[in-house]
Design a protein around this nucleic acid. Sequence first.
DNA 1: GAGTGTGAACGTCTTCACAGCG
DNA 2: CGCTGTGAAGACGTTCACACTC
Lengths: 216, 216
Amino acid sequence: MPTVSSEELAAAAGVNSAKLRKDFSYLGSYGTRGVGYDVEYLVYQISRELGLTQDWPVVIVGIGNLGAALANYGGFASRGFRVAALIDADPAMAGRPVAGIPVQHTDELESIIRDNGVSIGVIATPAGAAQQVCDRLVAAGVTSILNFAPTVLSVPDGVDVRKVDLSIELQILAFHEQRKAGEEAAADTAAVPAAPRKQSATDQGPDGDVPAVMPA
Amino acid sequence: MPTVSSEELAAAAGVNSAKLRKDFSYLGSYGTRGVGYDVEYLVYQISRELGLTQDWPVVIVGIGNLGAALANYGGFASRGFRVAALIDADPAMAGRPVAGIPVQHTDELESIIRDNGVSIGVIATPAGAAQQVCDRLVAAGVTSILNFAPTVLSVPDGVDVRKVDLSIELQILAFHEQRKAGEEAAADTAAVPAAPRKQSATDQGPDGDVPAVMPA
DNA sequence: GAGTGTGAACGTCTTCACAGCG
DNA sequence: CGCTGTGAAGACGTTCACACTC
């Protein structure tokens, strides 16, 4: 398939074809009227704009289950990421290979960052260690951090942090699940904190004023 | 701190206080003018709306590094999720406890779902197994699926799927990192596919027409 | 006086619809 | 004729600003 139309791509992606064309137009005019988009050329242009054509060395700090899962994750290599090093605070881990890469001790964090020109760090440590690791990464020159630890990290200006909370997606599913289950089942038996005293004449009790609407 | 104002909450969350008040207003009128919001009552109302007061049994299928990381993840319990079972296709895993829960074999998937009234399933298998696992979960009555496998799952209407791609967040960081590095460094040395022949009089070559703008 | 709740103004993103090009 | 590229219209979400309540 050498060529593809906005209509086809839109259908595949489940969006409106106009949106897709408009989005593409921000990258430049890479389509051909009456024909569509040249697939190979389009892929290259999008890849370049997204930074996929560059090599991004990353370090993963905290090689527990999650760190190991990340190290083994196949999707990284194909997107231009290269795991430059795995770092863990446990001396017993040092030297042990995970996903074919030997784990190094935290002591070497700074030199690893500098020697490899790493600008992106992944934190997969327990919550307690995260801020400290973060500070050291930043001090060593890292300017983008992906945080899997359940803490809010504070960083100086100019450093980007993205936090991934594995339970938030579950939360969203549960929220919709609750809506599916519907408003039929009413009684919530958990203890309801008393509403602050409202001097309304007809206090209907804790569940008298149920939420009316919630935007989808 | 028994009471809190929209201004304080907004500052803490880094958003506009008006937005916060408007959002809260969709849940009902739980504030007190001149005073603020009763913290305990507010927490309860939000928890209830989000479904945090309910007990959500979930199963995790695929107990590799990622599955194990999820099973050990502390954030679940506090949000109303209960890991009802861990399921893996490898018979050698069966019976082995992970995060204190014994792994069960895939053969028992259907009965586990039914016996525990599970409506949310987490897929942490390799890509190849994901669709098959998904089909079995759905057939057994699961209506919400959290997919960590790098595949697009197809499901019947009425079933929600959320896909978590661990590399997408890295991608986003890399994108911004690329912008930080700035437009100073120009030359991209990777092989550029030829642009489809445009009969323009002045073909400036592959990089003559660089993208002009990109919305933030 | 302090701070909520909310209509109205505003800005942004999406979709329409069509001129223009291949 | 088919499909892109894009102004204009429309939908949506955010912010302002103030009446109203405690």
